[in-house]
């Protein structure tokens, strides 16, 4: 769907939208701040602080612009959740390994995202706070097998210790690039004609995905 529209239209620069989902205190803001601070220090923190962040990357010679959209974890703001997710290329679903509820919430979001965006969105399920492993309430096996069953990849991170975060984003970017490239190939070379119908192109091949468990993203 929107993937091809967002990526690859202007030169070799990919623009990806990634939504960040997770309950209130799972540490998703720390995670993303850690990532955006690390390499390029503060200038990548926009004036919207941790709610909207951008990052520029260079992966195997290709430029990637990442826009990271934080979403509110509170239930009462979920009514319009879908307008946050739409046109996303990737989603990072964070739970706290010491909090089983937060993992259940992740499952809900996975369902929702698959339903909205089909299999074209690359899902990352992230167990955060691995520095608190002694209080772990979500077992590694459960989490990983669940992730596999829904075509997502699972990661272990600690925002506090800055562990696993760089890998998470790098991996996600690579998968999103693969998805975008595959889509470009599938579309053939029709892209050159679509200069002026900026809004018309996206609806055409947009059949609802009937099998949410399929895994286009598992190749990464």
């Amino acid at each position: 769907m929107a993937t091809a529209g967002a990526a690859g239209t202007s030169g070799r620069t990919y623009s990806f939208k990634v939504v960040l989902l997770g309950e209130g205190c799972v540490g998703k803001t720390s995670l993303v701040l850690r990532y955006c601070e690390n390499k390029f220090n503060d200038k990548h923190i926009t004036t919207l602080q941790a709610s909207f962040l951008t990052k520029k990357l260079n992966i195997t010679g290709k430029r990637v612009n990442l826009a990271i959209w934080d979403t509110a974890g509170q239930e009462r703001f979920h009514a319009l959740g879908p307008i946050y997710y739409r046109d996303s290329n990737g989603a990072i679903l964070v739970y706290d390994i010491t909090d089983e509820d937060s993992f259940e919430k992740v499952k809900n979001w996975v369902k929702e995202l698959r339903k909205m965006l089909g299999n074209e969105i690359c899902l990352c399920i992230v167990g955060n706070k691995i520095d608190l492993d002694k209080d772990r309430h979500v077992s590694v096996e459960d989490a990983e097998s669940y992730a596999e069953s829904v075509g997502a990849k699972h990661y272990h991170t600690s925002a506090k210790l800055n562990k696993g975060i760089e890998e998470l984003f790098l991996d996600l970017c690579k998968r999103m690039m693969e998805t975008a490239q595959a889509e470009e190939r599938a579309k053939g070379n029709g892209a050159s004609q679509s200069a002026s119908n900026r809004r018309g192109v996206q609806i055409v091949d947009d059949e609802p995905q009937a099998t949410p468990a399929g895994g286009c993203c598992s190749s990464g």
Binding site: M1, H78, A79, L80, G81, P82, I83, Y85, R86, D87, K115, M116, L117, G118, R199, G200, V201, Q202, I203, D206, P208
Partner: peptide
Amino acid sequence: PALPLRSSRSNHVRLSPER
């Protein structure tokens, strides 16, 4: 709460959660 007006939006991105 939001009209699904924009025709270019995919069908299953629903702008209007059932409340």
